[in-house]
Design a protein around this nucleic acid. Structure first.
Lengths: 139, 139
DNA sequence: GTATATGCAAAACTTTTGCATCCTT
DNA sequence: AAGGATGCAAAAGTTTTGCATATAC
């Protein structure tokens, strides 16, 4: 459950839409949501929040550093709570499940590639696409 | 200069729009184009090709394996000729220049991460964002 | 001649924005 | 009370599609 303090901490006023949306992002079981995913969860919970507000809140959360935004294949943005622990992503092309992983060696090699090109590395995204273990077994 | 044979080789009829667009993609100096980039180059060369055709041709080229499609930050797709030599990308957030690189160790580690998760890795995209050496010197 | 490609316009889809109203502090 | 947030609808940006016409083989 998010508290008013969580929002104040990042300089945002406490409002119902923000609390509800943050609550969905914090749920735990699922961590990656498109704007539509979030909107649908709100509808299911009978929360009357406009689609435009969902986008505005997610964008504010991103600017405030609460949330990360990803561009997987498929043309729609995906948002996740920023836990502060960097990780990369595996996306199952069959069930769309997203799995997080971290590999220190990959991180290191990126830095060294950037250094070799005198490139000031600020950010990166590594997305691996394939079929997850559950989907492999099901087929 | 692309030839009719290049298109026939991948099962596509020879048409003027296809030859012209392939020619732009093969130019050499620049390798990464949004659909609009391609359209603008056609206009500059006084080629009267519809925007819809540009999209259709790029999509067909992708399906035929001639072209790769990327989703960098920014919401628009970027296309490049598939040379068959896999590489990843550095994107300058100031001048938008795209630099290609390859690191065997990063490739290997991805495979081993996938194996650890029993994930059938089919594809991946690694985009590094930052400031290129030219832009760093200019500032 | 037949199947396929193109041009044009309209639609689809995702995301953003203007503006009046409502809410937080 | 004042500034900021929300709802609604409309707009913007990118990409796709329907359909009549034109083109490749």
């Amino acid at each position: 459950m998010p508290t008013s303090q969580d929002l104040k901490d990042v300089g945002l006023k406490t409002t119902l839409p923000r609390l509800r949306i943050l609550s969905i992002l914090e749920e735990g079981e699922k961590r990656h949501f498109s704007a539509e995913d979030v909107y649908k969860r709100l509808l299911e919970a009978d929360e009357e929040i406009a689609f435009a507000t969902v986008y505005r809140v997610l964008t504010q959360f991103e600017a405030a550093g609460l949330v990360l935004r990803h561009n997987f294949e498929g043309g729609r943005s995906v948002y996740e709570l920023d836990t502060g622990e960097h990780h990369d992503h595996m996306v199952c092309v069959q069930c769309n499940k997203v799995t997080e992983f971290f590999d220190a060696e990959i991180e290191e090699r990126q830095k060294s590639v950037a250094a070799r090109y005198n490139f000031d590395l600020q950010d990166h995204s590594l997305y691996m696409y394939g079929v997850c273990t559950e989907c492999r077994q099901a087929s």
